[in-house]
Write a protein that binds this DNA or RNA. Structure first.
Lengths: 325, 325
DNA sequence: CCAAGCTGAGATAACGTTATCTCGAAAGGT
DNA sequence: ACCTTTCGAGATAACGTTATCTCAGCTTGG
C-alpha cells in the first residue's frame, strides 16, 4: 500500500479511500491510484483491515462432518451470503476435543459469530469465550448448562406424528429403532417414543431399541422387533442412516412392514415403496440460526432464545402399509 | 495484552513469551502472567498474530457444495490436521462468480494455500493472485489455461475398465448416460466412452447420452438406449447422481440390465442387485492435494505437477448381469 | 578478582490497515 | 473584497501482535 501511494504520488490514506470506494477522491487521483494498484499487483490484506476495523465479516460454522449431507449448512451459507457475511466451515467429526479446538480457533480469529452443532454434554470451555463477547448459536442440539441461543427441530412432535399416523393406519405394535441415547436428538426421540407407547397403554417390551449405529446391532433389533408372539407391524427409525440400515435388513419384508424414517433424504424416493418420513425444515433452521446470530452480534444484550422449528410428516407409501392380519 | 502486562507487572513482550510458551521466562513470572490472563479473560488475537507473522496456518477449501457428500474434502481436512494446519471451507455452488468471490476472499485473508474444485473454463482472475504468490491446488478438475498444480482421477481409465468389464461379461451394446459435457469430468468420461466404442468397432447410435442431470432427460435417455432394434444390454453412468436417476427409471428392469456407475456411494450396497462402480481413490486425492500444497507453500518455485490418481472397479453384482438372450 | 559469557526481561519498531484531525484551496454569500 | 463554508487530500495514531536489539545482573574461568 505504501508502494502504491508512492507510485501514484498520493498519501496512504488516499489509496485506502480508493480501495474502499470513498467518493471524496478526485477522478484523476482515482485513475492514478487504480493504475498503480494494477501495476504493482497490490492485494489488500484483510487481516490488517479486520484488525483495524474490529469486525471480520466472517461467521464460522462448526459442523459434525463437512463431507456429509447437511442441508442446514446450505441454508446457513445462503442466509449469511444474503447478509453479506462469509461463512467458513470446519468439521468437528463428533469429537469433543476437536470441537473445542475448532471453536477456539475461530474465536482467536475473531469471527463475528459461530454456528455450532454441539457435541457431548460438557461445554464449559465456552464460558470464558461467551464472557469475552462471543456470539454463538447452537443448531440441532442445545448447549447443555449454558445460556446460549439455540435452534432445534421439534423432535418429540415428529415422533408423535409418526406414531399417530401409524396408529391411524391400524397399527398397535410399533417398534422404534434409534441411535445412541447419549446423543441429544436420539435421547429426545426415544423419550418421545416411550411417551407415545405409555399414552397408548401398551407395554414397551421389544419395541424400543437404541444404541450405536452398527449393522449387526440393527439386524438384531429388526429381528427382535419382528419376532416373538406379538411382532411389530410397523417400525419408526431414529435417523436417515438408520432407515437405510433397517431397510437393508428388512430385505423382502420391506413391503409388509410399515416404516417411517426420521429425516428426509434423496434415498426416500428411490426405494420401493417410497419412504414416508418425518422431515425437518432445514431451510428454516439455517436461516433462523443466521437471524439469531445477527441479532446477537448487533446487540449482545439480546435475550437468549431457544427456537423450536416444526417438523412435517411426508407420506410416500412405506408408512401407509396396513398391519399384516 | 497491555492490561495483562500491567496487571502482572511485566513487559508486553513477556506476556507474549508466556502465551507462546517461550522457555526463557522465569517460573514466577509465568505464574503471575497466567493468573493475570485468567483474571482479565484475555484472548489472543490471531489476526494481529498472523499479520505480524506473515503466515496464517490456514488453508482454504473452495468446493462445489459443502452440504453434499464429498469424501475428498474429508481427506483434505484430515491430512491438513495432521500437518497442524486449519482448513476452512466454503461452497462455490457451481457458480463461477461465486467461486471467484470465495477464492478472492481467501486470498485477501492471506490463507497460506487454497484447495479448489474449479468451475468453468475461465480462471483468468487467478493470474494476479498466482503472481502475488498464491499457493493453489486444483482437485477433480484442472484449471484450464493456467499452470497450476492439479490432482485428478483417471476418468478415462475408469470408463475403459467399466467398458472392458461389460464386454468380458458378453455385452456388446453398451450405453453411456452422462452429465453435461461442459463439465470437465463429464467431457473426459464421455470422450473415453466414445473411444471405447470406436475401438470396439461399434456404431455410437443411441448409445451415448449427455446433458444436464434432469429427471425427464434421463428417463428419455434410458428409454432410447433400451428400445429400437438393437437395444443396449448394459448401461454405464457418468456419476453417482446419474446412477440414482437411471435406477429410478429402470424400475423393475434393473435386474435385467447390467449397470456400472461412476463414483461409489453408500447407496451402492443398499440397492438390489448391489451396484458395481468405478470408485475414485478419494483419500489419495485429498492427501496428495495437501502434500502438493504444502510443498508449494514451502517452496513456491516447486515445479508445477498434475497427478492422476488411479480408479478402481468394484464388482458387486449389477455390472455382472449377463446380456439378455 | 576481573573480563567474558550467559540469561532473563524490557523498549522499540514493525506488520498493513483505517479513523480522526488538520489544512489549504476553491466556492459561495453579503 | 472579505468572511464563511465546503471539499479534497495529507499526517498521524491507533488496532494487537512478535522480532530485534539492548541491558542489567549473574556465572564462570584464568
Amino acid at each position: 500500500m505504501v508502494d502504491v501511494a508512492r507510485e501514484a504520488g498520493v498519501a496512504l490514506r488516499t489509496v485506502s479511500r480508493v480501495v474502499n470506494q470513498d467518493p471524496t477522491v478526485g477522478p484523476d487521483l482515482v485513475q492514478r491510484v487504480r493504475a498503480a494498484i494494477a501495476d504493482l499487483g497490490y492485494r489488500p490484506d484483510e487481516r490488517a483491515r479486520h484488525l483495524r476495523l474490529g469486525v471480520t465479516g466472517t461467521l464460522g460454522a462448526a459442523v459434525r462432518q463437512l463431507s456429509h449431507v447437511n442441508p442446514v449448512l446450505r441454508a446457513v451459507e445462503r442466509a449469511a451470503r444474503a447478509a453479506d457475511l462469509m461463512v467458513l466451515a470446519a468439521s468437528t467429526e463428533d469429537d469433543e476435543s476437536l470441537e473445542r479446538h475448532v471453536v477456539e480457533s475461530m474465536c482467536r480469529r475473531r469471527f463475528d459469530g459461530i454456528v455450532l452443532e454441539p457435541i457431548g454434554d460438557d461445554h464449559r470451555y465456552l464460558v470464558p469465550e461467551l464472557a469475552a463477547g462471543l456470539s454463538l448459536v447452537a443448531v440441532d442440539r442445545p448447549v447443555l448448562g449454558l445460556d446460549v441461543d439455540c435452534v432445534l427441530s421439534d423432535n418429540r412432535s415428529g415422533i408423535e406424528k409418526a406414531y399417530r399416523h401409524l396408529v391411524r393406519h391400524g397399527h398397535d405394535r410399533i417398534a422404534y429403532i434409534g441411535d445412541d441415547e447419549r446423543i441429544y436428538t436420539a435421547r429426545e426421540r426415544a423419550m418421545a417414543f416411550r411417551g407415545c407407547v405409555a399414552a397408548h397403554g401398551g407395554p414397551l417390551g421389544t419395541m424400543l431399541h437404541t444404541g450405536e449405529v452398527e449393522s449387526g446391532r440393527i439386524r438384531e433389533a429388526v429381528r427382535a422387533a419382528l419376532s416373538g408372539s406379538a411382532p411389530a407391524t410397523a417400525i419408526v427409525t431414529g435417523n436417515a442412516q438408520l432407515s437405510v440400515e433397517v431397510l437393508r435388513h428388512l430385505g423382502a419384508d420391506a413391503v409388509d412392514v410399515a416404516l417411517i424414517g426420521f429425516d428426509d433424504s434423496e434415498l426416500a424416493t428411490l426405494l420401493r415403496p417410497d419412504l414416508t418420513v418425518v422431515a425437518q425444515d432445514t431451510d428454516a433452521i439455517g436461516s433462523t440460526a443466521i437471524d439469531m446470530l445477527r441479532a446477537r452480534i448487533a446487540d449482545p444484550a439480546t435475550e437468549v432464545r431457544t427456537v423450536t422449528v416444526p417438523v412435517e410428516l411426508i407420506t410416500r407409501g412405506s408408512g401407509e402399509i396396513p398391519p399384516a392380519p
